[in-house]
Design a protein around this nucleic acid. Sequence first.
RNA 1: GCCCUGAUGGUGGAAUGGUAGACACGAGGGACUUAAAAUCCCUUGGCCUUUACGGCUGUGCGGGUUCGAGUCCCGCUUGGGGCACCA
Length: 957
Amino acid sequence: MEYNFKSIEQTWQQRWRDEKTYQVEIDHSRPKCYVLDMFPYPSGAGLHVGHPLGYIASDIYSRYKRLCGFNVLHPMGYDAYGLPAEQYAIQTGQHPAVTTEKNIARYREQLDRIGFCFDWNREVRTCEPGYYKWTQWAFSQMFNSFYCNKEQKALPISVLIKHFETEGNPGLDVAQSKELRFTADEWNSWDEQKKQQVLMNYRIAYLGETMVNWCPELGTVLANDEVVNGVSERGGFPVEQRVMRQWCLRVSAYAQRLLDGLETIDWSDSIKETQRNWIGRSEGTEAQFKVVPNDNPATKDGLEFTIFTTRADTMFGVTFMVLAPESKYVQQVVTSDKKADVEAYLEACKRKTERDRQAAHEVTGVFTGAYAINPITGENIPIWVAEYVLAGYGTGAIMAVPAHDSRDWAFAKHFNLPIIPLIEGDYDLNEGSFDAKEGVMMNSANSEINLNGLCVKDSIAAMKKYVTEKHLGRVKVNYRLRDAIFSRQRYWGEPFPIYYKEGMPYTIPEECLPLQLPEVSDFKPTSTGEPPLGHATKWAWDEKNRQVVDKALIDQKTVFPLELCTMPGFAGSSAYYTRYTDPHNDQALVSKEANEYWDNVDLYLGGSEHATGHLIYSRFWNKFLKDINVVKSEEPFKKLINQGMIQGSSRFAARVSGTNKFVSADLLDANGCYKGASTDPIHVDVNFVNNLDMDVEAFRQWRPEFADAEVVCNQEGKFVTTAAVEKMSKSKYNVVNPDDICEKYGADTLRIYEMFLGPIEQSKPWDTAGIDGSFRFLKKFWALFNDVAAEGACTKVTDSEPTADNLKSLHKLIKKVTGDIEQFSYNTAISAFMVAVNELSQQKCSSRAILSKLVVLIAPFAPHIAEELWHQLGNNGSVCDAEWPQFDEKYLVESTVKYPVQFSGKVRFTIDLPADADAEAVKAAVLATDDAKRWMEGKELVKFVFVPKKIVNFVIK
RNA sequence: GCCCUGAUGGUGGAAUGGUAGACACGAGGGACUUAAAAUCCCUUGGCCUUUACGGCUGUGCGGGUUCGAGUCCCGCUUGGGGCACCA
C-alpha cells in the first residue's frame, strides 16, 4: 500500500471535524494547558508559507501536551477590526465587513488544510458584536476607575468621589493628568459639569487634550508604537504633531507593574529588554530652582520651577538652565528686553515637524534674560530656552552640566557658556564632555556638603539625601512610557460606549451593550479629522429609552450625540485570550469558573514585532482586569516564544539592459555583463524555477511581454537564475502558497519541513527545494509499516517481540523527542526521527509494540499519517487520545562504551570499556594497554580526568 | 551613544566545557530501469603524502582561563533588533 497523503489527509480532516476531536471543555480531572497563537489579521493576500510557522509549532506543542494527559485549550480567531482590514477594503472599494468575511473564509480554508488541532467552537472575531461588547465593557470599566498609587491598583471612581466630598484632594496619591488642588468645600460647590471635568483628570480611560500623532493620509491619530521614524508604520505616511481632544488609556499608571511583571514571566531577554526600554524607567531627583526676580511680574513673588536630573551629584557644575519651548515657565521668566527674541524662537520651533526636529539635531536656543539661583552654590545662572529639552519628559526643564552631559556640552560650546569639570581624570573638555557615571568627584564642596573624593555612585546618593533633607527637592522616578491614545477617526473599529451631555462624556449603561457599529453612507476617512461615523444618521443616544435613535432627535431633551471616533486595532486584541476561555458567555467577559480553570496562557506564540504594541497593551489590560477582579492572574502570558520570519528566496533573470533579451547567469562575466553589454536582474516567479534552473516555457507564458523574449541558455540548454533573500511578498514574486505545498507533498510534509528548517525563533529563507528530504522521510516512515508494492494495510507489522536494538532505538528517540519538544527544539527532534527510522528499517523492525509507540511519537508533528497508521494498527479512537510513551533508561544502558583517550590534551586512541566502570577501573584498564605504556614511558602522571561515557584524559609530564 | 542578539562546510543547521560539522538539501560517483520518475548504496570542511583504520589545519579576529574552548572571561570586527537631544 502506498503513502497516499492526499486521501489520508482528506479523510482525517473530515473525521476530526465530524467527531469534534479537538473540542475541549472544562475538566477538573485533568490539568489544563493553554496554548495560544497571536490571532491573524485576515488580510486579502491569504496565507503564504511563512504564516503557519508559529501555528505549526504551537500545534505540535498542543498535541504533545494532550498526549501527556493535559486538557489543552488551543483556540484560534481573527483580529478583524482595525487599520489593515479597513485599508484593504478601501483599496478594493468594498465594505470592510464584506472583505473581512471573505478573507476569513479564505484563511480558514488554508488553515484547515494544514491539519491544526484548533477548537473552532471557540473562535472569536473582534468585529462581532458579541465579542466587542466586552471590549466596550472593559472600556467603560476603565472610564469608571482611577489608579491609586498607594494600593498600586485601579479602584472605582466612586471611591475617589467620596474622598473629594469629604477631604478634597490634598494627600491623595493617585495617577493623574495634571496636579490639581481643591478642598472638599470647593468640590461640593461645583456643578455637575465641573465635577466631570475634574474627574477626567483621574479616570483610567480619559478624554485628554494632548499632543498626538496625526496622520493626514490615514485620516487618523496613531499611538506611539504605530509611528516609526516619523512615519506611519502602516503605509509609511508622514505623521505630524497636533493637539487634539482624544480618548487615552492611562497605561503610564501601570508602568512600574509592567516593569516588575517582566521578572515573573518566561519571555526572551531581548523582548523583555525591548519592553524595559519602552517603559524607560529612570530614577533621579527633582530639585527646585528659584528664579531671581526681574522685570517680569511673574517673578516678583519668588517664582520657582522644578527640574529633573539623574545626576544630582553634578549640581556643583550647573552653569545654565534650559526650559523646553513649550514650558509654561518660559513666559513667566522672560525679561522684557528678551521677549521678542524668545517669541521668535518659539515660533520657529512650532513650525518644525517632529520629523525635522528628530533629524536635524542642530544646536539652537535663546537666552531668556532671567537667572535662577543654584540651591547648592547660591550662584546666579542664566535660564535659556532650547528645543533639545522636551516638554513631555520629566518637568520640561533641566539643569545643564556641560562638563558631564554631551548635549549640555554641545550647547555650552555653541553659545560660549562656562564648563566646570567635577570628576577627576584626564579627559579633555575642549573635545567633549565626560558622560560616564564613574570616577571621583572634585570641585564639589560647600560649607554644608562635601562630595570631593567620593565616587559618582556614592555622591548621587549623598546629594539625594541632602536635597531631600533640606527640602530642596525629592527623589523621583520618571517613565518614558506614555498613555495610549485610544481614538481613531476611522470607521472599522469598536464604537465607544460613550455619549455627550453638556459636552461631557457619559457611558452607555452596561446592560445596553454592545453598542453596534452603525451603517454609514461613506466609510472612507477624511483628511480633516472628521470621523466617518459622522455620516451615520441613526447615531444618537436616547438616555430615557436607553437606545440608539436617529440623530435628528438630538433636539429632544433626553437624546444626546454619541462619540464618533472608534477604538484602535489593539482594543480588540488586548483581552481576546481571556474571551477564548469562555467565548459564548453573554453575561460576563469570562465566568469565574472558566477563569479559575483555564487561567492565563501557558504558551504564547507570535512575532516579536508586537513587543511595544500588543504585548504591552495586553499586559496593561490584563492587570486592569485583575484589579477589578475579573481575572485572577497578574500576567496574561506565562511563556512567550517569538517565531522568526520566513523570508522569501527571490530569483532573478539577467536581462540585457534596454532589451527583451535574457541571458543565463553562468554566461555573464564577473561584472554581470554579457558580451560587454550590462544586464539588469529581473524578478521572476520562484514557482517556475527549480533551484536556479528556470523553466523557460513557463517564463514565456508568465507575462505577455516575455512571450517572445530572446532567451540565451547555457551549453546544457539550461537557463540559470541568481538568488537573493528578501521579504516574502507578491511584488517580489517569491511568495510560496501553502496550498500548493499541501497539494504536491501533503500537510504532514509541510509541517515537518517548516519545523526542520531551523530553530523556530530564527528567521530563515524558504527554499522549496529542501522539502524532498522531509517528504522522503515520511515515505520511509510509511514503509516501516506498509510494503508499498503489496496490497493491504500494515503488511509489514507482526506481533514479534522487539529486539534489544529495536528497544534501544525507540527509547533513544523517546528521550530525545520528549526533551526537544519541551524545549521547542523541533528541528533536532525531527532529525532524531530520521535517525530512528533509518535504524529501525535497517533492523527490519516489525514489532507492533515498537511501531505503535512510534506512531504516537510522530503524531504531534505529522498528525494525519499518525492517525491513519494508528487505525491500520487496529486501534480505536483517535491517536490524539493515546498515551505519550514513557522513556525507560534501562534499554539505553550499553555494556561497553567507546572512550577517546587523550594524553595531555591530544587524542591518541580509543578504547572499549564497560559502561558501568568507575574511574579507578578505567584508569587501570587504560594504563594496561600498549598505547598507554608507550605514552607513559619516562613520564609522570600529573592528573587523571574521567568523565563517564565521555572521555578519559591523562595529563603527563 | 546605550542595551539586547547572532557569526560554524556550497546551503539550512547539530554539538549539558569532552572525538566539531548530527540531520537534511545540493553536488559527485554507482546500482536498478528500454527510459524517466521513484528507490537504494558510496563520497562530500580545507590541505598534504594517498601506503594505510595516515598526518596537518579548521567554528568572524586577537588575547586569556582550562588537561581540554564553537561553548567560559577580556578586547575588537561585523550582521540583525530595540531605545535615543529621555537630562
